[in-house]
Amino acid sequence: MYEFTYHKAESIEAAIATLQQSDDAKFVAGGQTMLPTMKHRLASPSDLIDLGGIAALRGIEVNGDALVIGAMTTHATVAASAEVKKLIPALAGLAGNIGDPAVRNRGTLGGSIANNDPAADYPAALIALGASVKTNMREIAADDFFTGMFETALAENELIVSVRFPKPQAAAYMKFENPASRYAVVGVFVAKTKDGIRVGVTGATPCAHRGLRLEAALNKDFSPAAIDSVELPVEKMNSDIHASAEYRAHLVKVMTKRAVTACG
């Protein structure tokens, strides 16, 4: 890892100001992706701005019929939260199955979605629940947030403040996990919302996406059997040492069926 200048930001404004004054600064949240990336020299920022001291970025609030979770809230906190378990138990379950306990004690919601790893879990939940991402500048719908592999709609000087998750009528997340890292080979989040069934798929393609064909089938008939006749575009699926494109296409359907069953 190359040397850099470390800053501990006290407020959102201070974090943005430091970013603007620096050559090539990056935020660091839990560091569970950022530090490994820097060790590999895939990133070598001039400055690292630690968001860990900003109280306004942490915490879980119930706001009407929605959960608002601060960007710096760790996976362990989300998994253990009584509010999350009550309002959106599938989200608590998802957070509780990210990586391992030590990763969950440091890794954060904001870091996960800003990074947008193609195999990350949270993006599927944001998409299926119709969540919105609040930044220091604006509010971005999940549908518009995840734009490509490791790419998001965030601008250079934009910092994620919190994510708003509307409560669904029912929801479930099923992941076929990589046995070493626990990242999703394929993960499918199914939600029954007031606007119908929404499906978020991660791991399958270079960027998490809405499963529109799956949604169409499930909006007609919310049953596992409805998935049988859905044709998925194999040519768009990832293919790597963990799973071929054909296998991933198969897994998307299997995980969707399991999630539908779990929704009850």
Partner: peptide
């Protein structure tokens, strides 16, 4: 040294962390 093995786990403010993945 790549956050995988857990040989470096210590507690920071009472919580387990991988000390190879924290500055």
């Amino acid at each position: 040294d790549t956050s995988q093995c857990g040989a470096c786990v210590v507690h920071v403010d009472g919580k387990s962390v991988k000390s190879c993945t924290m500055l």
